[in-house]
Design a protein around this nucleic acid. Sequence first.
DNA 1: TTGAAAGCGCTAACAG
DNA 2: CTGTTAGCGCTTTCAA
Lengths: 331, 331
Amino acid sequence: MVDVAAIAGVTTMTISRYLREPERVSPLTSAKIKEALDSTGYTPNKQAGGLASGKSPVIAAVIPNVGNTLFAETVQALCDVFHGSGYELLLSATNYDLEREEEQVRAMLGWLPAALIITGRRHTDATLQMMRNARDRGMPIVEIWDKTTRPSEFIQVGFNHQEAGVLMAKHLIERGYTDLAYVDSGVPDDFRAHERGLSFVRHAKAAGCTATTIIAPRGEPMAAGRATLRTLCGGSLPRALAFANDHLAVGAYLHAQSVGLAVPDTVAMLGFGDIALATELGSGISSVATQRHQIGFATATRILQELSGAAASTASLPPELRPEVIHRSST
Amino acid sequence: MVDVAAIAGVTTMTISRYLREPERVSPLTSAKIKEALDSTGYTPNKQAGGLASGKSPVIAAVIPNVGNTLFAETVQALCDVFHGSGYELLLSATNYDLEREEEQVRAMLGWLPAALIITGRRHTDATLQMMRNARDRGMPIVEIWDKTTRPSEFIQVGFNHQEAGVLMAKHLIERGYTDLAYVDSGVPDDFRAHERGLSFVRHAKAAGCTATTIIAPRGEPMAAGRATLRTLCGGSLPRALAFANDHLAVGAYLHAQSVGLAVPDTVAMLGFGDIALATELGSGISSVATQRHQIGFATATRILQELSGAAASTASLPPELRPEVIHRSST
DNA sequence: TTGAAAGCGCTAACAG
DNA sequence: CTGTTAGCGCTTTCAA
């Protein structure tokens, strides 16, 4: 910056001002600075800037797994919205491990990000402590992909997984099935999937149905779905299956196709997530649409709003992200 | 840090040292510092640290689209390897737009990242200039998902797309097909897909086959694949189709199933990317395996190597990431 | 409209 | 093993 200033014949202060509030620099000076800037290929050092100003144009996001389509699309939406707003995205993956989440959050907060996006509402005590501290210092903290029924201490952009579980049970019951099972994710810390399962089973039983939970093996999810159905075929096969996610459902559906099991006549299947494939496969797999892109979009929008100083009261609430069963032919 | 130092009864320098080189602090002092650290919940300010040390524990990655499974898995691998190494990942998405890429690179370089990961080898002149400058200052720059046959000015971790195109053509020719077509991606800036297509067609023609290129519509790729096949069925259907990516192939495959077109007897299909679904669908779609996880892994490993000061000569070359046709039943 | 001075929180280099 | 000094590159605040 010193070089640029020397070339333009001004002080660094003027350069700095030109970069942040160009309207406060005279047109003549601006022209000189512009030229100097081009000739040097200057890139402002953001660390120095952040240190001096106490803010940093970074937004931190902590996600279980970027490789998962659901989260990947949410992240993509974040990138899209933040692009052009001047914020960068600092990303980290926890691999569904709360300890690792804690480390990541600690590391990210060291960057004094303008906001923190974190997945879900379950965190270690230490993580929660850090989140509260940060919030109290004015940092917007958004929990995504979950939503409690009562008001929460952080902003939440997502939906209620208990309701989602009930929704799944209701759908199957309405379609006339009474012998149900929930195929749960094999990932121990995938709390949201387990939560849907619990309330699925609870609701189904309360409605007088048979309902059990089956845990899919870990590993590649489609293969796990396939394996689960294979195992079930060995014993007693429930009349209708609700899956923790579409990948499991797809795997099971494909297995059914390959062994000639009729869907939904012999076994009905309901997925969760509504990935593109659910529409395309066979005559369509019924699934719960979750608006994963919308979650990213709403989160980013809400954060930008908060950061631009819109009072919490005026800040419009995130749009309703209520999940919805998309009925296709597998149920 | 001043507070922590006061509580522990030492100077900030000792705290700083404890955090970075704990073995150089006496056990007694360490214990006190540890306690002070816990009691305050101190989080080091990374901007200040970076500014002072001239390095920053961040690695920048510029990717076309995080929502795409291929890149998402690469990114996931990056996260996994960098986790624990002390580096964070600064991520941005270009949406296959070189202008946007330029902006992003400029913004990211402002963080003085320890390394830069960028997708592909085509960039605007300004981007290239920035990359060269950075490299000359010692920053490892890695171009991923591509590889030129000649030595390149940057580190490349990926494979050669011309060879991949030839590979696809060869596979189909070996299987006895002579009336071929390449279904290209509808994304104009997906250069790598176009490049595979060009050499696919060139090789096929040189081998005496008929070969054309068909451009898939933009939009959701499976739907695009389906639409492409539907269109082709209206006119003359080539005997074998090579697709720019597996999503297109899957869409087309599903369309074939739904209209009762025999695969591969009426039309053969070869995908690219080898996503999990290619294995699972029907009796399997032949596809080119690209080791997308491996690309992330090799990139991260290589970068850590360079950063740990391993001389360029000793740094082991990234493992061979040669694509490979996985033959299943669709060809 | 521009500049001067001070300092953000940390670490490098050296001294003790 | 621990402390002192200086300064990273920028922005804030105030003065001209």
